[in-house]
Design a protein around this nucleic acid. Sequence first.
RNA 1: GCGCCCGUAGCUCAAUCGGAUAGAGCAUCAGCCUUCUAAGCUGAGGGUUAGUGGUUCGAGUCCACUCGGGCGUACCA
Length: 542
Amino acid sequence: MKAYLLSLFNSTSEKLNYLNEINLTFEIPKNLEHGDLSSNVAMLLTKSLRKNPRQIAEEIISNFELDKDVISKVEIAGPGFINFFFSKNYVATIVKNILSNEKDFGKSKKYFGKRANVEFVSANPTGPLTVGHGRNSVIGDTFANLLEAIGYEVDREYYFNNAGRQMRVLGDSVKLRYLNLLGKDVVFPEDYYQGEYIRDIAQSLVNDFGEKLIDENPEGIFKEKAEKEIFYEIEKTLKRLGIFHKIFYNEHTLYESGKIDSLLNTFKEKNLSYEKDNAVWLKLSEMGNDQDKVIVKNTGEPTYRLPDIAYHITKYERNYDLIVDLFGSDHAATYPDVLAGLKALDKDISKMKVLIHQFVTITQHGEVVKMSTRKANYITLDELIDEVGVDVVRYFFNMRAINTHMNFDIELAKKQSDENPVFYLQYAHARICSILRMTEAEGIKLSIENLNLLISDEEQKLLKKLSFFEEEILQSAENFEPNKVCSYLEELAAAFHKFYTFCRIIGVEKNLSEARLALACATKIVLLNGLKILGVSAPEKM
RNA sequence: GCGCCCGUAGCUCAAUCGGAUAGAGCAUCAGCCUUCUAAGCUGAGGGUUAGUGGUUCGAGUCCACUCGGGCGUACCA
């Protein structure tokens, strides 16, 4: 429908030149009486033309060359909106389109041939993924799915660091637990990792090695064992959610390959850094940021900024057209430094898209749970999946805008899992599958020959909803808004459930029956394609 | 103190780059199953969009300030 209006305005602009100056947009009116699509061009032109918007609208309309088979009515309404009403026949043709494209319906080729990198999760292997990581994991994967749907070839990437202070403490924690288990009298400091998993790892070392490791360095087998075990668990959890990273990028390789040193040299050569107080500083204030920051400490160790910049340079070297970083608001302060560094090195910053999601506030028994891996005060993602299932977890994190400070009431999630909107969508899909089983038994075959019979309100509303799918996906992807996919699918499911209630398929006149079956099949395809982007299953029975 | 994010129905959230009468779900209440799955449908109640000013044809949306909450503000990541 939008495509038709665009070409309509395009041909009209040959007569009315001022139409070329305006950015054409169409919106779907909330109120049905305002048509199927609406344009506000006339109002946007009031200033430059110095005319009443309704007069302008009048002039535009009178120059349209309308196809009566497509547009049934055009009217001017309110302050100067131009409202378009499409013919029922035209609306019904979407079914053909859906049935012939099937799995590919909704996908677009706008970004065909482009490559994107989506970095998400990126948790260091110090403990199991928590509910807090869940939001990052799910929306990161959904972004990747969305980008694929609009033509990108996407690499999912996980950046991690198995060196540094956190990991030292991890090794120390395991060793102390190990000594603990062997009956040694040791003090376990409060700021060490308190989690039960540390004890499990230590226990398995006791089982395998007995007392042989008592004199081993904590940075050796203790740390290595912990990292391996924890990473194994992280990957297992992600796998449950259907998340698979193509690339695991270890920060350490940046040092081994000399990229850190060479970056440091580049900064120095370009006079972008200087030494002060025995440390190396990056001239961020000259790059437009608030203040200069240290990139190499007086101990000789780099701060996280240097490897972060070096890491992102590798993304540029790997020739991506789009580089997406997703992280929680606790890291929001770090990315301007990275961007400034990249810009100073003449990298095209417009390829970067840094997305920040707000925190998930967990409440349990009416109280806010402050999550801390160190203090072992957390609810793991695995526990959540055990409680409510993969589909609910994925849907729940996808359904809210990433900027919302979302609340997660654990009790409510368990209790209301039956009433979660995800079941509403899945139920629509299962209902259609059920109809398909019945019609097959009855020998009813779908047909696209008599789609013009689909004229009731319920049928038309469903058809219109279906026709906006591709546009919704495109917008969700371009704006990085997975929650819009959820809203769309909920509306689609609602339109279907109404259609189901009022329009019978089995037991009506043959041509109508076949046309309605075609509509039901088209709906099934769109539901399936949409749920697939969200990573949610579409059961055939419930 | 400063920076970023947020504040919408009892609760959780929407609202198409500023659009027409602010919408869903849950919860509450009243109806609908001899016919394709009632995990559904129909209807009702529920709002000074935190507050005060401003910008304009038009503001939940943009600007300023105030109040309240989250996250930052390291030679930790």
